[in-house]
């Protein structure tokens, strides 16, 4: 009993080290003044200062942020409509709609990017930001849907009936009951979709019009021309933002997020 406890603890620690060492190294090195990530460690904010003078990276970051933000908003609206709409369906139709909503999760981003690119070519369009947003929406939407579906499923259908029995019409019930109950999931889903879009390289790479880039694309191309610790710094900031998003999602969703990952506690 005790022995197996030690073994399982050791295993967990090993797994955590395996998962997070590279990230920790990257974060630590962003504070090291050496250009080539050399020891001894010499603490400095040098690379962060450089970063804030690097207009290309900053512009790319701004692009990433607004693309992710617009994607997040679109995803929340679409996901809310989809989940509410599928709720009204019955039986088999409902199941298949729900499957289709989550399908993009299982298709590799590469393929999605490629197929959108092919479509643009086939229709004889120029690459433009509309398609970037469309592509990002396709891959980010399922995350909003997942969160909203979890919330919808845990919502007591009697809430809406109670509202109606108290004299509220359909519109009022939606505004005062359904929407507020779903609201935390909408915020959480929006943040998740934001993160997915913000981090995405593959679709941006395929669909970006020339002269326009996002942070992941900039990072990738600057690595091609020689690695600078500025990238460590920007990556550290991205990780920070991602963790913040996750924390917000976790805080808002509380126990509902748990039901997303399997209903262990009943």
């Amino acid at each position: 009993m005790k022995k197996s406890g030690i073994i399982s603890k050791a295993f967990v620690i090993f797994a955590l080290i395996y998962l997070y060492t590279p990230i920790v190294v990257l974060m630590v090195m962003s504070f090291n003044s050496s250009r080539y990530n050399q020891m001894p460690f010499d603490f400095s904010f040098k690379w962060y200062q450089d970063l804030f003078q690097n207009n290309v990276l900053i512009q790319a970051a701004i692009n990433s942020i607004w693309i992710a933000a617009v994607t997040g908003v679109i995803c929340v609206i679409l996901a809310t409509l989809l989940v509410l709409g599928s709720q009204a369906l019955s039986g088999r139709l409902k199941n298949s709609v729900q499957t289709f909503m989550l399908m993009p999760l299982t298709i590799p981003w590469l393929i999605i990017g490629l197929s959108i690119l092919l479509m643009i070519r086939a229709l004889d369009f120029e690459k433009n930001l509309f398609f970037v947003l469309a592509g990002h929406t396709v891959i980010s939407l399922p995350y909003s849907v997942l969160v909203l579906q979890a919330r919808m499923q845990s919502m007591d259908p009697a809430l809406e009936e109670a509202s109606a029995s108290l004299g509220a019409n359909v519109m009022t019930t939606f505004r005062r009951i359904t929407l507020p109950v779903l609201a935390p999931a909408m915020v959480a889903g929006g943040f998740l979709s934001f993160m997915i879009s913000f981090d995405n390289f593959v679709l941006s790479y395929f669909l970006m019009p020339s002269g326009f880039s996002t942070l992941p694309i900039e990072i990738q191309s600057s690595i091609k021309f020689g690695f600078t610790p500025e990238i460590n710094a920007v990556s550290t900031i991205i990780i920070g933002i991602s963790l913040l998003c996750l924390a917000i999602v976790g805080l808002i969703m509380g126990s509902s997020i748990k039901s997303l990952f399997g209903k262990k506690e009943v």
Binding site: D156, L159, E161, A162, A164, S165, L166, A168, I177, P180
Partner: peptide
């Protein structure tokens, strides 16, 4: 007559209190 116009009080098995 629609539910919201019937003026009927209902106490649900789950109570269905508005959580927010």
């Amino acid at each position: 007559i629609k539910v919201h116009q019937r003026n009927i009080g209902m106490v649900f098995q789950s109570y269905a209190l508005f959580p927010h």
